[in-house]
């Protein structure tokens, strides 16, 4: 892969290359997203810019670390969802991290639980999950579910399907399954077992309630 030396960070993808890869989807998109995040992690200019912004705007180094990670995770999500329209990759990533910090600070200042764009988009008249469970606590619950209700193979399959938007034939190819139908059947089995396991939790009803605001929302994998 060509290194783009002209950029402030040594990125393996040009803006056009990245746009083309994320639009293509599948393994090309995955490879591109990983490469971009890895290159940004190794770019001192990017790191310095984020740290300077957070520190200059009332944050601590620990918060800067958090913004750096959360911002890059958000970047991967936006790339997956087709929200990158081209243009300088570092500038796009820096803007995301800045927004992450501003949201975090606002949240802290106003003592709100969550004010990011996803929640505000879907709150409607329903109770928000944030009123039921703080975001961090919620992540801890999900980590527990991941540990107890999903084996590695099922998690991998579901991530490929639900998050990365792979088609079943590609999933079968990558996971060494016979064909697309085998992948579909395995996915259904994994879902069924995982849901059955979640239903046995004491907090199952709360968890179920907490997702109802998502009903209007669909994911698109950047299609």
């Amino acid at each position: 892969m060509r290194i783009v030396k002209s950029s402030k960070c040594k990125l393996r993808y040009t803006a056009d290359g990245l746009l083309s890869a994320v639009t293509s989807g599948g393994s090309m998109r995955r490879k591109a997203i990983h490469a971009v995040i890895e290159d940004l992690c190794k770019c001192s200019y990017f790191e310095n810019t984020i740290f300077r912004f957070v520190l200059d705007n009332g944050g601590t180094r620990t918060q800067a670390e958090e913004v750096f990670e959360d911002g890059l995770i958000k970047l991967s999500e936006l790339l997956r969802k087709g929200q990158y329209q081209g243009g300088k990759i570092e500038a796009f990533a820096i803007q995301i991290c800045k927004n992450t910090w501003l949201n975090m600070r606002r949240k802290k200042d106003e003592q709100l639980h969550l004010t990011d764009d996803i929640s505000t988009m879907d709150q409607a008249d329903h109770e928000t999950p944030e009123s039921l469970m703080a975001a961090k606590e919620r992540r801890a619950v999900f980590r527990d579910i991941l540990q107890n209700c999903l084996d590695e193979a099922c998690l991998k399959l579901m991530q490929m399907k639900f998050i990365e938007g792979f088609r079943h034939n590609k999933i079968a190819e990558e996971l060494g399954l016979a064909n697309a139908n085998s992948s579909k059947e395995k996915l259904n089995r994994c879902k069924k077992n995982a849901i059955k396991c979640i239903m046995q939790r004491d907090d199952y009803q709360d968890l179920l309630k907490s997702v109802d605001f998502h009903l209007k929302k669909t994911t698109t994998h950047g299609k």
């Binding site: 991941l146 639900f162 879902k191 995982a194 979640i198 997702v211």
Partner: peptide, 16 residues
């Protein structure tokens, strides 16, 4: 709702 919940869990795994 169950499917959405499961997807959120999977997303958390991806983010982790």
């Amino acid at each position: 709702r169950q499917n959405l919940l499961l997807r959120e869990v999977v997303e958390t795994g991806y983010q982790e």
